[in-house]
Design a protein around this nucleic acid. Structure first.
Length: 343
DNA sequence: ACCAATGATTAGTG
DNA sequence: CACTAATCATTGGT
């Protein structure tokens, strides 16, 4: 035992004990003066082991006596140390948890969506930015975003209140456990370090619950996104003039209705829409025209006449110049645009 | 309320 | 990456 105590580096307490063991008369006298029986570690352990065999009152009294024993702190630290070296070391190895990549992802997304970020101003700006970046949808999107933002704010509010609830519950539980452990540490070898570790465990458990919250919040945001930011749901028909311009181009280039990038830009400008909208329009137009040429015959004629008239005006002005873009001037053309493609 | 028209998205292709 | 074809979701006329 002496060796062991020295190895454990224990201080005065046990040193004094060993002295008492040897029967230092001075120490014995002091103990007598304090009214405590002389005893060694073996006796103490004996008492501890026997404590369950005694009546409750006896046990309480014994416990109190043991608690007040001057050897108690030393014993306590020994037991703590032994415990530390056995049980806890097993778990202590994998203690340092690297930040969970999953929760990092969720956090990043929530931040990007403006759910978990700063409150009003920054949040909505971030949301708008995220929306613009993700959708790529070139809608000017000023009206529809108000609705979106309202819903997002709702989600944010729920998220925050839930988060607060969790945090509160967590801290409540933590303090409860800490109090319990502190209380217990009067009779059981529970070191502050162990309490700390227990707190960490609790926090991890709660953070996994939080992750569920974050996950479901993310899902809610995604659904909201797809509901509100999908441009299909906020479609506006182009105005008459715009469709007229587009149709004019389409039917006057029926043989090759593929506007160049420049032409698209020009059309976009004329129609007050974006280039990709022009591309969409031509894509739709081509496929729908091809699918049912008959249905579009009337329209084709209309625009053919229109361009013919324009061409006529132009050529009238320009005397005899051959306008290059009047493939169908005159009659009603069997459309040059065939399903197989460009002529 | 129904349905054709229509702008936008998506998967697939060269 | 531009394009086609299919499809979605809304608009607007009836």
């Amino acid at each position: 035992m002496d060796d062991q105590t020295r190895m454990l580096g224990l201080g005065g307490g046990l040193g004094a004990l060993s002295q008492a063991d040897v029967g230092d008369p001075d120490s014995a006298r002091k103990q007598q003066a304090l009214g405590q029986p002389q005893q060694d570690i073996g006796d103490i352990l004996q008492q501890i082991m026997a404590i369950t065999d005694e009546s409750l009152d006896e046990a309480q009294a014994r416990k109190h006596a043991l608690n007040c024993h001057r050897m108690k702190p030393a014993l306590f630290s020994v037991l703590c140390e032994i415990k530390e070296k056995t049980v806890l070391s097993i778990r202590g190895v994998q203690e340092e948890d690297p930040p969970d990549p999953q929760i990092m992802r969720l956090d990043n997304m929530l931040l990007a969506e403006g759910v978990s970020g700063p409150e009003k101003g920054g949040g909505s700006a971030a949301a708008a930015a995220a929306a613009a970046a993700a959708g790529g949808s070139p809608n000017d999107g000023s009206i529809e975003h108000s609705d979106y933002r309202a819903k997002l704010a709702q989600i944010r509010q729920i998220y925050h209140s839930e988060l607060e609830k969790y945090e509160q519950a967590c801290s409540e539980f933590t303090t409860h456990v800490m109090n319990l452990l502190r209380e217990q540490s009067r009779t059981r070898p529970i070191s502050p370090k162990e309490i700390e570790r227990m707190v960490a465990i609790i926090h991890r458990k709660f953070s996994s619950i939080q992750m569920q919250l974050k996950q479901s919040t993310c899902e809610a945001v995604m659904i909201l996104r797809s509901r509100f930011l999908d441009a299909r749901r906020k479609r506006r028909n182009f105005n008459k003039q715009a469709t007229e311009v587009l149709n004019e181009y389409f039917y006057s280039h029926l043989s090759n209705p593929y506007p160049s990038e420049e032409a698209k830009e020009e059309l976009a400008k004329k129609c007050g829409i974006t280039v990709s909208q022009v591309s969409n329009w031509f894509g739709n137009k081509r496929i729908r025209y091809k699918k049912n040429i008959g249905k579009f015959q009337e329209e084709a004629n209309l625009y053919a006449v229109k361009t013919a008239v324009d061409a006529a005006n132009v050529s009238a002005q320009a005397s005899q110049a051959n306008s290059p873009a009047t493939p169908n001037s005159g009659g009603y053309p069997a459309p040059c645009y065939t399903p197989d493609g460009r002529l």
